[in-house]
Write a protein that binds this DNA or RNA. Structure first.
Lengths: 223, 223
DNA sequence: CCCCTGAATATTGTCGACAATTTCATGAAA
DNA sequence: TTTCATGAAATTGTCGACAATATTCAGGGG
């Protein structure tokens, strides 16, 4: 029987922890893309009842990580070039808007934080070597921070609590080292610069170009 | 004990039907915005077990129609000016992108359907009188059709299966008659024209302006 | 009069069991 | 060999019950 994630039961329910744990298993490919989910088996493996597990599965479905069919069961989504393309088209629209809003609503504190983040990224050895530009998931991730600076909770929820898990799933399962490390970093700098100057229109354009370039890079890997 | 929606059990589960029914109750305000949800009471009212009801509630949560807190329960979301603004900002980004994509991928059949839809709208008496521009939910809704023409399933899901229910909730509970009826119709025509000519850039700009104008109109009503 | 404390009540989270449906295996017929 | 039917096994959908937690309400102290 496998252990669940660390969080204690006071703040989160068992279904909550199952959800977080399974989300990680799927994103990082330990539960294979396209594979069938067996409720009895998973429930046994994590020592939970089927009811609690089903609650977690439903949340995963609404995240777009599972597909469920009535009386048949759940499957992990399959990765496809089309799915990747669609994901990046949506990101281009939403993160472009996030940049526009962030430029309009930015605070002095936002700017300090964003520059602090860039400085930390710049210290990465892999980035210096140009071999990779690792985005630590969470607070220091560039896109994550920009979206939060938009001050639009719906945008934050849509991107950070929904789409980003699928993005990470594609990244993990296609390898994350990127030949675009240095140019990606430069693009990030320029975007933050535009936000700093309050130029929402430019910030949006730069972000959209950045995401298009990122997509083309991943598409290239896919072949 | 209240009746559930008509769909028979062969294709959909009980939780499915509960979900669809409750979604309508919330969108149309029969379950008041901001009110607390009592699981035992709702389960009794629809003659279902708490388990099935909870499954429906969780889906409503992921739709953004409910907010749930552990060990406390679910509440219907409250309508706010800020929520409305955020919703329209996201729509502006996503539907703008939908237009851009639709212009690039449109088929001859798409164009026939879109013009057919416009012709039907034009026959509405209320539109002729300039008092309202009623958008029948479903296949004939303008935005719905544009989004589908984008051929991006993720975009379709995000807008049509997630955001539009919140849009309809705001519309229902703030009244739907609009002084913009005639100009909205003209804007729709121009957008379809741009899509017809394959001008994605223009179609995107027009759609974004259209949604901004629509938002300002609803915001005006809110005061 | 207001605030705090603690028991009583109600609600939520979790579980195991049963019914309905699907999937799989076996074998017969074309 | 392929296809189709048939029954067995497994899986999913649904339910009611119990434990844990939150809410309510009464009473006492400040």
């Amino acid at each position: 029987m496998q252990e669940l994630s660390q969080a204690q039961g006071g703040e989160s329910s068992l279904a909550d922890r199952l959800f977080v744990t399974l989300r990680g298993e799927i994103v990082e490919g330990r539960i294979a893309a396209g594979s069938k989910i067996s409720e009895p088996e998973l429930a046994r493996r994590y020592g939970a009842s089927r009811g609690s597990l089903r609650e977690a599965l439903m949340r995963l479905e609404s995240l777009g990580l599972l597909e469920r069919r009535v009386n048949v069961g759940a499957r992990v989504v399959t990765l496809s070039e089309r799915g990747l393309l669609e994901l990046y088209e949506v990101r281009e629209a939403l993160e472009g808007m996030a940049c526009r809003l962030a430029a309009a609503k930015r605070t002095a504190e936002d700017l300090v934080d964003l520059h602090h983040m860039l400085a930390r990224h710049e210290q990465q050895e892999e980035l210096q070597a140009g071999t990779a530009y690792f985005q630590p998931e969470g607070d220091f991730d560039f896109h994550f921070r920009i979206v939060h600076a938009s001050r639009n909770d719906l945008l934050v929820d849509t991107l950070c609590n929904r789409l980003y898990y699928r993005v990470r799933m594609y990244r993990y399962q296609l390898g994350m080292a990127s030949p675009r490390a240095r140019s990606a970093f430069r693009e990030h700098s320029h975007i933050i610069e535009a936000i700093e100057e309050g130029d929402g229109e430019l910030a949006e354009i730069l972000m959209r170009r950045h995401i298009r370039a990122s997509r083309q890079n991943i598409e290239h890997k896919l072949r």
